[in-house]
Amino acid sequence: MDRLKGYGKILFFVGIPLVPLLAFWFIPMFVSLWLSTTDWDYISPEFNHVMLENYQTILTSGNFYAALKNTAFFSVMTVIPTIIFGLVFAALLKKVMKGSTLFKSLLFSPWITPMVAMSIVWTWIFQPDVGLLNQILGWFHLPQPSWLTDSNTAMWAIIIVTIWKNAGWAMLFYADALSKIPNELYEVGKMEGTSWWQNSKYITIPLVSPTTLFLVIISLIDAIQAYDQIQVMTQGGPAGSTRTLLYLYYQMAFEQFNMGQATALSTIIVILTGVLAFLLFYTSKKWVHY
């Protein structure tokens, strides 16, 4: 009897938090998994079961691989600079600015500005004829690409905006991590005559590695899920040069109304994200020092 009561209690306390998880996560996940095996068109009440045909179509289409390549390129080119700029800014903040709040808020402000609003401003900055960026490039007689309207440069433009937005956010985490490194460790270095580079390599980088892992995972997921800036600035163009997997999903679902294939793609994105996160955690044992 007592034991039964015990189980009841456990069920009660575990069960209640499980309700929202079930309602908002597990159920939609299973519904979408199920949807991905149909050819529903988002509007009509009828649909057929097509089993794995959607997956087959996607995995054999050139669009998918182009988008995959774009996503990979976008992820690598945003995550790595975000991490590097974040660390460099945090180090500067510590050394030069002595923790200046003004500098901190200045760098952090892009992160609290909505991506949509920022993308609109940047669309103007990237404007080929009157945009700020090309004006400045013009003063220095540098080439002035047409940025968002050229398939060679559009992706770079999106990458610049994304780094701009995220670097300040990464800096904030690194600033905290740096402030936790005891100064004595650098003094040990000073007694032996370590160079700037040796300090970074032997002290700073290993000691902020847990923060680095956290930032890599979060900004990688953020990169795979990038949507706002693409929607506002290029809508996946020109010529599909900025069409990432998520944007491809959006176009399949809400432009082509091909709900089955879209959900199949979203499943692939989720699996891909999961595998990447797992790999990162798995390899992190080698380079993250707690």
């Binding site: 005891p182 004595e184 460790l185 003094e187 040990v188 290993p206 000691l207 590695s209 020092h289």
Partner: peptide
């Protein structure tokens, strides 16, 4: 040093 100042990693 007082707090040992060992490299934790």
């Amino acid at each position: 040093f007082q707090n040992y100042a060992l490299f934790p990693h």
